[in-house]
Structures are given as C-alpha cells and as structure tokens.
C-alpha cells in the first residue's frame, strides 16, 4: 500500500490501516507469530479483550511469553473454528431432571478438536486457556480431562496422569475412615 508518499503521510496511512485491522498478531514464547480475528479473540478471551480495549496490542506481535507456539497455534485454531461454527440448539442433555446448566456440552467439532491432541498438548492448551481467560476453551479442555478420569479406579487415574501417590498407608486408611460415606462399596 505504501507507494511514493512523503514519510509522514505513509506512516499516517499505515496507522489508520492498522487501527482498522480486523486481526491481531500474537507472539508465542518461542517467537512465532499468529494472526487471529480481533472479534473472536475479544469474544473468547477476557485477557485479549482487555488488551484490545486498552490498546496494549502490539502490531508487530503481542508477546505471550507464557505460551509456546504449539499451544498458541491450537488457541488460534480454536478461535477460528469457533468463529466459523454455528451453535447448535439442543445443547442440554434431555436426561437431566434438575439442572442449573451453566455449562453447555462440547459440540461435535469441539470434541474432535480436543480428541486429536496429545496428552501434553492438551495440558499446554489448558494452561494457555487459563492464562488467557478463555472460559469456553477451559470448559472444553477440562471436560475432556474429566472424561479421561470418569469410571476409573484411583490406581488407573494415577497411571493415566502419572500421579505419584505420596500418602502413607496409615494416612490413606485414615481418609477412608473419615470419608466412609463416600467409600460405601469398599
């Protein structure tokens, strides 16, 4: 766009163009740049919404030092997919008899989106969503982890998530006695 104009004039044109830009550029901890729709970023992330409103978005790439490029790519991918998806009407399970329902079940594309992630990529994304204040993405990723825990014994859960049991035998016994009302089958 910058043809033969005076320097000041060109600068002015660039500024105006960037103020009108409908994307924001985000920079991962390892220096990679990603572009995402300004509208989607502001709608899905409270942190990015605050930065956009406060004018602290850097046109050369807003530094997100906490987020690696793989996680940021997933964040941007999620924002783009979200912007293109049509929300479905029937979101609440019909079997629920009494429910406050603040959480809408993941949609088909959201399920696919988290299902394809590796174990580490899923956790990187939870951390990124938490850092960026992306409530829906946090819901969807945490929901996925809860599905991985569902119906499993404590030993199985420890194995899936590499949890080290740091209780002593006596402590465990004490907990089971204290919470006998929750361990009715044992």
């Amino acid at each position: 766009m910058e043809v033969d104009k005076g320097k000041g004039e060109a600068e002015e044109t660039r500024k105006v163009a960037e103020a009108d830009r409908d994307t924001v550029t985000l920079k991962s901890s390892d220096g990679k740049l990603f572009e995402v729709s300004k509208e989607a970023a502001a709608r899905l992330s409270t942190v990015l919404a605050g930065m956009i409103a406060g004018g602290s978005i850097d046109d050369n790439g807003t530094d997100l030092k906490q987020i690696g490029s793989e996680a940021l790519e997933n964040v941007v991918d999620y924002c783009n997919k979200h912007a293109n998806s049509i929300p479905s009407a029937a979101l609440i399970s019909s079997s629920i008899s009494f429910n406050t329902a603040p959480f809408k079940e993941p949609e088909e594309w959201e399920r696919k989106f988290v299902d394809r992630l590796s174990h580490d990529a899923l956790f990187d994304l939870v951390e990124a969503a938490n850092f960026l204040g992306m409530e829906r993405l946090l819901d969807v990723t945490c929901h996925k982890i809860s599905e991985m825990m569902k119906g499993k014994s404590p030993d199985q859960i420890r194995e899936v998530f590499n949890i080290k049991n740091d209780y002593t035998k006596e402590e465990l016994e004490e907990i089971r006695q204290e919470l006998a009302w929750a361990f009715y089958d044992d």
Partner: peptide, 14 residues
C-alpha cells in the same frame, strides 16, 4: 464435571 461421588473419591489420589 464429574459425578460428585467420583469427585470426592479423587481425595485418595495424592
């Protein structure tokens, strides 16, 4: 997201 009885029983994990 877990049924409450499953949620309580996570207390034995660590």
């Amino acid at each position: 997201f877990l049924p409450s009885d499953d949620a309580v029983r996570t207390c034995v994990l660590a």
